[in-house]
Amino acid sequence: MNESEIRAVVLATLLSIAPEVETDDLRGDRPLRSQVDLDSMDWLNFLLGLNKRLKVEIPEADYARLVTLDDVVAYLMKKLGIGP
């Protein structure tokens, strides 16, 4: 799995929770939750969706580091042992 494939999984997971999102309009370097209306339950379901799709365990202590889309993708790549 490469970076763009992981990003696609992240966006698909996001769309399953917030189907109204225009993914082309999302800025990867801006806080995701300032661009998409996700409440605490949505956010939990988003992370759970990533956990299910990618089999990555995300400790609660790491939640605070996952701010932007780029953060999420980089975090998952590291967890999956991909990339630089």
Partner: peptide
């Protein structure tokens, strides 16, 4: 408590 729980069973502060 959440550190010991699987992701799907963690509690929200709410």
């Amino acid at each position: 408590g959440n550190a010991k729980r699987p992701m799907a069973e963690r509690l929200l502060p709410a």
